[in-house]
């Protein structure tokens, strides 16, 4: 926020420039940000404008079109990778209490962690399933739109200074072991035990432009659709709905609601506060 933004008279102009930028990127590169939620998309754009030493969104459009490395930089801005293990511990507590018992009734379980970022959420689910004795008959598909992000997730490594927070979250989420059993420290970083990723498939997948690729008993898509506008949320909800088995479970982020989506009637809450829903129609 160092630079003054354009004055009010140009507010509508800014909206035009954002439209053109999104359209240009779509035409030139196929990445579709046209229906990303404007307030946060706008912030990302201005940050990139400033980082490139430019002064308008139109200048950024010119640069991303003619300079693919600049597009790459903008892309990594947009795969916002703020995640944490056992983020929102109450969610995982409820997952243990209410989802795990359902999963016990299946001979084999498929889970889709859509928008998995760098894998923190995926490993949290893997740990819960290990402790429940279900992991060996589970496969977790963990996907994100950014290949670089998925590549990072595959390394199973995280900064060691995060472990205090993650350990506290783990305990609050109902974990009963010593969290440090799950990783080995290596200097400034820790690596989680490869057995946690044995049944995980990390893959690049874009929720906006790619299709459903399987049927799942559980889909977690938390804090991903907040980056989409309501039209795009509708589109992605359809994709998730089509990818869930009957009685499958959908998990959303703590401040997301299914109430605004037309598929809401196809779900009943499994736990409203944890944003866990069950597909019943």
């Amino acid at each position: 926020m160092a630079e003054p933004r354009p004055p009010v008279r140009r507010r509508d102009l800014e909206a035009v420039e954002i439209d053109l930028l999104a359209e240009g990127i779509y035409e030139a590169y196929g990445f579709d940000f046209r229906r990303y939620s404007r307030p946060s998309f706008r912030r990302r754009i201005w940050r990139r404008v400033e980082a490139e030493g430019l002064s308008s969104i139109s200048e950024l459009l010119a640069r991303v079109l003619h300079d693919p490395p600049c597009m790459q930089r903008f892309l990594s801005d947009l795969s916002v990778n703020v995640s944490a293990m056992f983020r929102d511990p109450a969610f995982f507590r409820v997952f243990r209490a209410k989802v795990v018992p359902l999963l016990r009734t299946y001979p084999f379980v498929r889970i889709w962690n859509a928008g998995c970022s760098t894998g923190e959420e995926t490993l949290s689910v893997a740990i819960v399933l290990k402790e429940a004795g279900l992991y060996d008959r589970t496969r977790i598909y963990a996907t994100d739109m950014s290949e670089a992000t998925v590549e990072q997730a595959r390394t199973l490594t995280y900064p060691i200074n995060k472990m205090r927070e993650y350990t506290a979250n783990y305990i609050e989420a109902g974990g009963t072991r010593s969290f440090s059993e799950y990783y080995a420290a290596d200097g400034e970083r820790v690596m989680f035990h490869p057995s946690l990723a044995e049944n995980v498939v990390f893959a690049q997948h874009n929720l906006v432009t790619d299709r459903s690729f399987n049927e799942f008993h559980v889909i977690l898509c938390r804090n991903v659709m907040i980056y989409f506008d309501r039209v795009l949320q509708e589109h992605v909800h359809k994709l998730l709905y089509d990818s869930l088995t009957h009685f499958g479970v959908l998990g959303l982020g703590g401040r997301e609601t299914i109430e605004l989506v037309s598929h809401r009637d196809a779900y009943v809450p499994l736990d409203e506060t944890a944003r866990l829903y069950r597909k019943v129609a």
Binding site: S37, S40, V80, I226, L260
Partner: peptide
């Protein structure tokens, strides 16, 4: 996220989220 804003209401940013607005509606980001 994406909740419509109405007069007579006060909307509080949830812990751990940025609160943003567009005309008439709320948006969140992490």
């Amino acid at each position: 996220d994406k909740q419509a804003m109405r007069a007579g209401h006060a909307y509080l940013a949830p812990p751990g989220y940025h609160l943003l607005v567009e005309r008439g509606a709320l948006a969140l980001s992490t």
